[in-house]
């Protein structure tokens, strides 16, 4: 564990909590992509099956459980409790366009051809693209609520911090996981355009709107 990893995990947790609180406090999930949230729940479910097979630390198990519970809670709030506020007309990205190719790739490119390892690989690839329905939704409506953009910024920061963590681990421990690194870089690149808009608009007190 290094400081970048820890900050990355906390940033990830912050993102998840910002989103849950936003939905809970405003009693509305307008502007949030339910598709992205379902994909994240699927990511955590397929990745954290190792909760049952190997123990790393209390921190590791506790964080996994928190991520899992929070992601299912978000999906529950969006599709059941506050379903009436869910903006499904603008959430039109087709999940199968991500899940099917990612599943195929996980079968072809993995560290070991075993069920748990393939599911882990699937979760890594899927996480890289799971935010696309949300970004697609923002590009369709042309704007995002400020709180939604804070959520995305925290989520993007988590990815960027993980890259720094990998560089650090490579030099200090000689550790690297090529699958995680390539997928993590792809994921971080997807946020670049958003980061630019966040810094030029949201941090100056304006709402996030896309240039016409």
């Amino acid at each position: 564990m290094n400081i970048f990893r820890l900050l990355g995990d906390l940033s990830h947790l912050l993102a998840i909590i910002i989103l849950l609180l936003k939905i809970w406090r405003t009693r509305s999930c307008a502007g949030v992509s339910g598709k992205s949230q379902i994909l994240f729940a699927l990511v955590f479910t397929t990745r954290y099956l190792d909760l049952f097979t190997n123990f790393i630390s209390m921190y590791n198990s506790a964080m996994k459980l928190i991520y899992l519970v929070c992601s299912y809670a978000t999906v529950f709030l969006m599709y059941f409790k506050f379903k009436a506020t869910y903006d499904s007309n603008h959430d039109t990205f087709r999940m199968e366009f991500l899940v099917v190719p990612v599943g195929g790739l996980a079968f072809l490119v993995n560290h070991d051809f075993t069920p748990l390892e393939i599911l882990w690989t699937f979760s890594i690839y899927l996480e890289a693209v799971a935010i696309l329905p949300q970004l697609f939704m923002i590009s369709k409506t042309g704007e995002a609520e400020t709180i939604t953009s804070h959520y995305l910024f925290a989520l993007g920061s988590y990815r960027a911090l993980y890259i720094v963590n990998w560089v650090f681990r490579f030099y200090t421990e000689g550790f690297f996981d090529l699958i995680a690194i390539v997928a993590g870089c792809v994921q971080t690149i997807l946020y670049c355009d958003f980061f630019y808009l966040y810094i030029t608009k949201v941090l100056k007190g304006k709402q996030l709107t896309l240039p016409a």
């Binding site: 190792d50 790393i56 070991d112 882990w120 993980y162 963590n165």
Partner: peptide
């Protein structure tokens, strides 16, 4: 590809 290790990252 690198050797398989327990996944200590989240």
């Amino acid at each position: 590809l690198p050797i398989l290790k327990p996944k200590d990252e989240l």
